[in-house]
């Protein structure tokens, strides 16, 4: 019996799952916008603008979800300041939830400055993009690291969750940009770049997912459940392989913007669905393992 089975579930569920999803999109979208800010062309501006906008609103929503999930929501600031030793800061570099709280705050600030300066035309530009891109990258990946730095089954049984969530954040960030950037006048060239990046990221994500499951060793048996079915059908099938097929289909590469066919035929929508389901299965599969702690003697 793996040692992680003797632990208690933190019941992170319907605030944390959307937080991990939205945080991943926000981080991934900003990361791509920052890359285009540095290495793109003037024609990429609508995508950059959409990235900043997604990042800013995503950071706001993330902060709200994280706060609502707390048992004492009004004490959210205890993550940032020492409540009984003000104004000293509260920061633990070795606690992912602590550096995650700071990363979210600083990312939100960067996203706001980038979004605002882009809106008003102030040239804050590249330096902010570099700093914010780094925080976006941390935001997209730290959630997986946070889960690994526990003692819970599945999460703590593999070090690959951070990498997997980061890849998923990049793919969902790109998918969100493909969906929303056309409304801001994104060019076909920018969208094609985003789509080809998304396809490559999906391959990376699939490889990481396989490595993650294999690295679980005997704990991988936990996937012989409803959550395993959802992982295979929802995450791998609908969220990775199907959009990959749609991307690779020779002639009729469906553009972004949702034009031409239903949601099922839109790779960006399917990538977002897969990214959401990935968080659902990873969190809830582990949460469902609570038996061993309750039933003493079951490990004999």
């Amino acid at each position: 019996m793996p040692d992680t089975y003797f632990t208690a579930s933190p019941h992170w569920s319907w605030y944390i799952i959307p937080y991990f999803f939205v945080g991943g999109i926000a981080g991934g979208a900003y990361f791509l916008a920052a890359l285009l800010e540095w290495f793109g062309r003037p024609e990429d501006r609508p995508v950059i603008r959409t990235g900043y906008s997604l990042a800013f609103w995503g950071a706001l929503v993330s902060g709200a979800l994280l706060t609502l999930d707390l048992g004492r929501s009004l004490r959210f600031w205890h993550m940032l300041f020492q409540s009984n030793n003000l104004p000293h800061l509260m920061f633990k570099s070795f606690s992912p939830i602590s550096f995650g709280a700071w990363a979210l705050l600083l990312f939100g600030a960067c996203a706001f400055i980038s979004w605002y300066s882009d809106k008003t035309g102030t040239a804050f530009g590249k330096l902010m993009a570099a700093v914010g891109g780094l925080f976006g990258f941390i935001l997209a990946g730290y959630t997986g690291v946070l889960l690994s730095v526990t003692n819970r089954p599945i999460w703590a049984d593999s070090p690959w969750l951070g990498a997997l969530f980061l890849a998923s954040g990049a793919s969902t960030g790109a998918a969100a940009l493909v969906l929303f950037a056309p409304g801001r006048g994104a060019t076909q060239s920018s969208l094609r770049w985003l789509e080809s990046f998304d396809a490559r990221t999906l391959v990376v994500e699939l490889l990481l997912l396989i490595v993650f499951v294999v690295s679980l060793g005997t704990v991988a048996k936990a996937w012989l459940s409803f959550w395993g079915l959802l992982l295979v059908v929802g995450v791998v099938g609908a969220g990775i392989l199907w959009p990959l097929w749609l991307h690779l289909k020779p002639a009729g590469a469906t553009g972004g913007g949702g034009g031409g066919g239903g949601a099922l035929r839109n790779p960006a929508v399917m990538v977002l669905l897969g990214g959401f389901l990935l968080r659902v299965v990873v969190l809830l599969a582990s949460n469902s393992i609570e038996f061993q702690r309750v039933a003493a003697g079951a490990g004999q």
Partner: peptide
């Protein structure tokens, strides 16, 4: 009086000792 109920400690404990007190929210 300091805990804000984030529940990181619950997942971190290798013995499953800690849990939420729903009266205090911590």
């Amino acid at each position: 009086d300091v805990c804000n109920g984030c529940r990181a400690c619950i997942a971190a404990c290798p013995f499953g000792v800690i849990d939420m007190n729903h009266v205090s929210g911590t």
